[in-house]
Design a protein around this nucleic acid. Structure first.
Ligand SMILES: [Zn+2]
Ligand SMILES: [Zn+2]
Ligand SMILES: [Zn+2]
Ligand SMILES: [Zn+2]
Length: 831
DNA sequence: CTCAACGTAGTG
DNA sequence: CACTACGTTGAG
């Protein structure tokens, strides 16, 4: 109290002080009144300590991007320095209590480092109540009664037993340490409500409480009900069976929100939905969700809650941040860290525990059992860490008890999710889309669209079966993003089986002009709602290095070292990797290796959920295929801003609204951009996309486009004219591959522009695709003779291009370079 | 002390 | 509600 009083006084005092009159604007941020308010609001419980960056997470370790909204404001980047906000790319994922924080009761700092046992650690660490703001050692609380509800979203954050009992929701207050979307630059969040696309998501009700996230107890009645239900289900059936959770919600509609991740992250949830689980209750048996913490941390008694706890475990992840740190500090229990990954994976694969296991066995029989057994043990012990992945449950699952837990966990949230993910939907989507043309690099040339679709369909169907059995999606909700990815992968997984097809997808999707007349593909925009991603917190990957060897039950380590395993894993499809991730913590950890996820393919994934997004972020892919998805602008902005290393981005068939995220978010290393068949993308939009940021600030003249490093640009099916081509030439000096197939406005003049003297494209162009461009004639071929590096000219299905013209081109070029006709009107340089 | 940036008052 | 601005806290 004293402290708070002092603070109030301080505030008052300061507010009364005359202000420096520097500010350009007379606005007063803090008026005396406001100061008072502040103190009052905090009054009951004392002021909340401001959190500070952890300095360890991926975000904290980054350098300032220099391009985001806040960076631009910084003086060092030429801005006025008024906003004083952290670079968006560096927004800490796990803000910690200040080092100076001490226990309100004993006055001492956190002492978790002094013990090894997780439970002990928990009792000795400082926990900040998101409701009353008090910071205490759980051990110092007299009443250990019911225990508090741990918020895994934030390190050292819970709802203390007092508040918990009092039934306070704490909703009103925003949880500590979280920035709301409002803190982010508008560009990130805004979605222009333009046309059609917009609707993607009904705005979610504000999520008022970030802090709430998990509350088990929270006031929300809904949640409670849900919870109750959930537990039952869990108990009753193994995850698989559950029918789509939808029923539970009562809301049949598939919301994005539903995604598995949700549990943990309320952030995303917009609606009231019962996100329930973010937090883990420590000791309440009631909650089905009770988080892992209980088990792991078990501050109090695990006993009663076991079942619930298990479910909750998934949550471990959330908590994880702290845990991880702890672990790191320690020796690192391999297992714990691994959990994170596992969790994610779980999300992907969870549901099917049984199935998964089987699969895993199939894949790797020999080792599994032992390993699995072993790891389970390990994992169980570790629990308290806060893993980056929220899915938490996975790791724990390993142990026997955990297994149960998994099953239980899975259930709840997912209902909706399951639907969304259901393969059915996917299939439906696929069918709708007429054209998609992705070819594998090999196909480069074109392959009939249909084939792919059918392919996908098949896959999805297969998947479906699984789902039906397992209801994966349902469970997943809890999982972290990875889980999401997993789900999606599972669905379409079959596709990949065995083959690295993904790569192909990413590789070149050159559209194939199979049917010259093809109508523009209809993008399938699913109705999904977006989620408020801003609030989504992504847990950083475990800091400690992954274990080098598998620990066997007998205490020995497996002969194969990690790198050897990695070689094996590198031959698996993403789907199978997700399966493997469920085997044990170690595998979980290994399978999440970035090297295995350089390319993430969500092509045609019906709905992109927040969990998926976070799963993507965690894997930091180099290539990302979001073609034909209904991703929203907000989501894409969020992603791009967190994928600084992204080099390949495929957005075919997405809406312009979504694609416009590229106008505001920078993707410095982007080399390949696929925006084929983007509805509404015309010259004006191309201008927005290519034009350098209009920077009003003096001194920061940057005439370079954000897309200046693009080498491979795919514009199939866009209604763009020479106006856009001029911009492309101007702003993409390294452009090597350009796909303008199905661009009806492209003419010989366009080619003339592209190959004109003085343009960089003239010499940088190696591949040009003008197939099905009916206005292009033999004249264009003469222009191409000016290109110094041209290797591949695709003029197939160009009605006005003659075979003779091509032959003449070959003849004339033969002096310097040998060209051949790979196919009719398809000129290829012969090496 | 300086620098970063948290969290919210205030604005439109 | 989205967004700006800024006092103030926290790290070093
Ligand atoms: Zn920045
Ligand atoms: Zn951090
Ligand atoms: Zn204490
Ligand atoms: Zn409290």
């Amino acid at each position: 109290m004293c402290v708070s009083l002092v603070r109030c006084l301080t505030l008052l005092y300061s507010s009364l002080q005359p202000r420096p009159s520097n500010r350009p604007k007379p606005k007063m941020a803090a008026s005396p009144a406001s100061a008072v308010k502040l103190s009052v609001s905090r009054g009951t419980s004392g002021a909340r300590r401001r959190r500070t960056r952890c300095r360890k997470c991926e975000a904290c370790l980054r350098t300032e991007c220099g391009e985001c909204h806040f960076c631009k404001d910084m003086k060092k980047f030429g801005g006025p320095g008024r906003m004083k906000q952290s670079c968006i790319m560096r927004q800490c994922i796990a803000p910690v209590l200040p080092h100076t924080a001490v226990c309100l009761i004993c006055g001492e700092a956190g002492k978790e480092d002094t013990v090894e046992d997780d439970e002990e650690k928990f009792n000795l660490m400082l926990m900040e109540c998101s409701i009353c703001n008090e910071i205490v050692h759980p051990n110092c609380l007299k009443v250990k009664d019911s225990g508090g509800v741990v918020n895994d979203e934030l390190p050292n954050c819970w709802e203390c037993p007092k508040c918990n009992h009092a039934g306070k929701t704490g909703k009103q207050k925003r949880g500590p340490g979280f920035k709301y979307a409002s803190n982010l630059p508008g560009s990130l969040l805004k979605e222009p409500r333009l046309n059609r696309d917009i609707k993607e998501e009904p705005d979610p009700p504000s999520v008022a409480a970030a802090s709430v996230t998990a509350l088990t107890m929270t006031s929300a009645v809904k949640r409670k009900t849900e919870r109750e239900e959930i537990p039952k289900r869990k108990d009753e059936e193994p995850p698989k069976k559950r029918p789509p959770l939808l029923s539970l919600d009562g809301t049949p509609r598939p919301r994005l929100e539903d995604n598995p991740l949700r549990k943990k992250r309320k952030l995303f949830d917009t609606n009231d939905e019962p996100v329930v689980v973010k937090k883990k209750k420590l000791s309440k048996p009631d909650d089905p969700l009770t988080s892992k913490l209980l088990q792991q941390i078990k501050t109090e008694n695990d006993d009663g809650d076991d079942e619930d706890d298990h479910e909750d475990r998934e949550e471990e992840d959330r908590f994880p941040l702290d845990r991880n740190n702890v672990n790191e500090k320690k020796d690192d229990d391999e297992a714990e860290q691994e959990e994170d990954d596992e969790e994610e994976e779980d999300a992907l694969t969870k549901e099917k525990d049984g199935i998964i296991e089987d699969k895993a066995k199939v894949l790797l029989n020999p080792l599994l059992r032992t390993l699995a057994a072993r790891e389970r043990d390990q994992s169980s012990s570790n629990s308290p860490r806060a893993g980056p992945s929220s899915e938490s449950g996975d790791g724990q699952e390993k142990s026997c008890g955990q297994l149960k837990a998994r099953q239980q966990r899975r259930r709840f949230p997912n209902k909706e999710l399951s639907k969304e993910f259901s393969s059915e939907d996917c299939v439906a989507n696929l069918n709708r889309r007429p054209l998609k043309i992705e070819d594998s690099p090999a196909n480069h040339n074109r392959r009939p669209l249909k084939s792919e679709d059918s392919f996908n369909n098949q896959n999805s169907k297969t998947l479906r079966t699984e789902d039906a059995t397992t209801n994966q999606s349902c469970r997943w909700p809890l999982n972290n993003g990875r889980g999401d990815l997993g789900d999606w992968l599972h669905h379409r997984g079959r596709e990949m089986n065995g083959t690295p097809r993904e790569y192909s997808t990413l590789g070149f999707n050159r559209s194939s002009p199979i049917t010259p007349i093809c109508p523009r593909p209809i993008p399938c925009r699913s109705p999904p709602k977006c989620i408020q991603m801003e609030r989504h917190v992504i847990r950083p990957p475990p800091i400690s290095p992954p274990p080098d060897r598998l620990l066997l039950n007998d205490g020995e380590t497996h002969i194969m070292r990690r790198e050897v395993w990695m070689t094996v894993f590198s031959h698996l499809t993403h789907r199978d990797l997700c399966v493997c991730m469920r085997v044990c913590r170690t595998w979980n950890r290994w399978c999440c290796d970035k090297r295995l996820w350089k390319h993430i393919d969500l092509n045609r994934c019906k709905s992109i959920t927040p969990p998926m997004l976070s799963g993507i972020i965690r894997r930091q892919p180099v290539a990302l295929d979001l073609s034909w998805t209904n991703i929203s602008k907000k989501q894409l902005s969020w992603l791009i801003n967190r994928l600084p290393g992204l080099r390949v981005l495929l957005l075919s068939g997405c809406s312009w609204v979504a694609v416009s995220a590229l106008c505001t978010s920078s993707c410095p290393l982007l080399r390949t951009l696929d925006i084929q068949w983007v509805e509404g993308l015309k010259d004006a939009q191309m201008r927005d996309l290519l034009s350098p940021p209009t920077d009003n600030r003096p001194g920061q003249l940057d005439n370079r486009s954000k897309l200046r490093n693009v080498v491979d640009l795919r514009l199939t099916g866009l209604d763009i004219t020479d106006t856009s081509l001029r911009l492309i030439i101007r702003y993409m000096p390294f452009l090597s591959k350009l796909d303008l197939s199905y661009c009806n406005h492209v003419t010989d003049q366009s080619v003339n522009i592209l190959t004109a003297a003085g343009t960089t494209t003239r010499d940088s162009l190696t591949d040009i695709n003008l197939s099905v461009c009916n206005r292009v004639t033999d004249q264009s071929l003469t222009y191409f003779k000016r290109c110094g590096s041209i290797c591949h000219i695709d003029l197939r299905y160009c009605k006005q291009v003659s075979k003779e013209g091509c032959e003449q081109f070959i003849a004339e070029m033969s002096v310097s370079v040998q060209f051949g006709l790979t196919e009719e009107k398809l000129l290829q340089k012969l090496s």
